[in-house]
Design a protein around this nucleic acid. Structure first.
Lengths: 199, 199
DNA sequence: TTATTTTAACTAATCATATTAGTTTTCGCA
DNA sequence: TGCGAAAACTAATATGATTAGTTAAAATAA
């Protein structure tokens, strides 16, 4: 940023992250990014294969950062407390890096091994947090999916400006997480009841 | 589709819907759509203002269809049953019209009145369903947000192929909804406890 | 230091899309 | 039949991504 910043992949990713966080993922273009880096568009091809590869790398970075946030939040906590902490961390990441998070959910190549592994590590982290509930293995996985759905859903809707009514959004979030936690407790008490697909 | 189909806005929207449901929202282009309609790209401009207007109209159609599905599902039901029914309808809509649903969450103009109104009608429908729980007005709205988050989150993750583990996705969904319902019951019992933002 | 190699920039050109301008065709109907 | 509107068309322009081929600059080896 000062005089002649040395451009390498990490600088490119950093600028791209700033760009998408400020202007949205859809505004990311080779041209605009090159402009921010003060080079010509084709020069970017010396560092990466094109826009798709860039988006893929952003996706990976986004998932890794999400994991990082959640992991830090989970340190030294367990049970309900841990769920609240990782949920809050998730929300915080999306608010601080809306574009990067968006990138982490709209990637060109879902089969990318590095991406898959990063995603898996988030799942494992949540499974670890749920470990304390002594749920059946299968139920635990369903619960991970549930919590992910809640977190992704809430943050996405918030980002798209979907909560229209003038009502404290943070409170909505806390209540949602608490409702889910209460639900887990209820399910814990009678797991069998929930293992049958009654429909 | 037969020999000379008369092209008007509704035919365009229908073909566009097929296109996005089959190939994804990002594949929607003036060129491809024109090809499917067997006309030249510029001819589409006789019917609409451009790609953005088309996407906006798809978004509105998507929200309206979602409302329709949910409303039909809610007829004659109440309480937990009604929540399960509208949730199932939501999931069904997204599975039958993934591209249209996607369009309904990524629109060019969030201030469009028709779009806002359609979205509002979905919120009102869910509020009506929650009415039976006799929640405080404010809590009810938080719960609407919660359920929307769950439904949007779950369906989005499913669509992006995000549920990696080999475990019945439908069961995950039922458990999630049931967990949420149990949570509502728990919260209902002691609403005050959840009205304080303890963090 | 100087020569060589590699890296990373550049210009110019191509391709895909959206869009606009201006023209022609088609079709319902007076 | 023939007019006027609707809706198609061709041609042209603009923006972006990308490729090809070239040059400059930096790192490294002699």
């Amino acid at each position: 940023m000062s005089r002649r910043m040395k451009i390498d992949l990490s600088v490119i990713l950093q600028k791209a992250t700033e760009l998408v966080d400020e202007q949205g993922l859809d505004q990311l273009s080779i041209g605009l990014l090159a402009e921010k880096l003060e080079i010509r568009p084709p020069s970017l091809y010396n560092h990466l294969d094109g826009l798709n590869e860039l988006k893929q790398k952003l996706a990976i970075q986004g998932v890794k950062k999400l994991h990082e946030y959640m992991q830090q939040a989970a340190v030294g906590r367990s049970g309900d407390d841990a769920i609240r902490a990782i949920s809050k961390a998730y929300l915080q990441l999306v608010r601080e890096h809306p574009g990067l998070y968006d990138a982490s959910t709209r990637f060109p190549d879902a089969n990318d091994q590095e991406l898959k592994q990063a995603q898996e590590s988030v799942v494992q982290l949540v499974l670890q947090v749920l470990d304390g509930y002594k749920l059946q293995e299968e139920i635990a996985i369903h619960m991970v999916r549930g919590l992910r759905s809640i977190l992704h859903g809430f943050t996405s809707i918030e980002q798209m400006g979907g909560f229209g009514m003038p009502l404290d959004i943070n409170k909505s979030f806390l209540i949602l997480i608490n409702t889910f936690i209460e639900g887990i407790h209820a399910v814990t008490i009678n797991e069998e009841k929930y293992m049958q697909t009654n429909d």
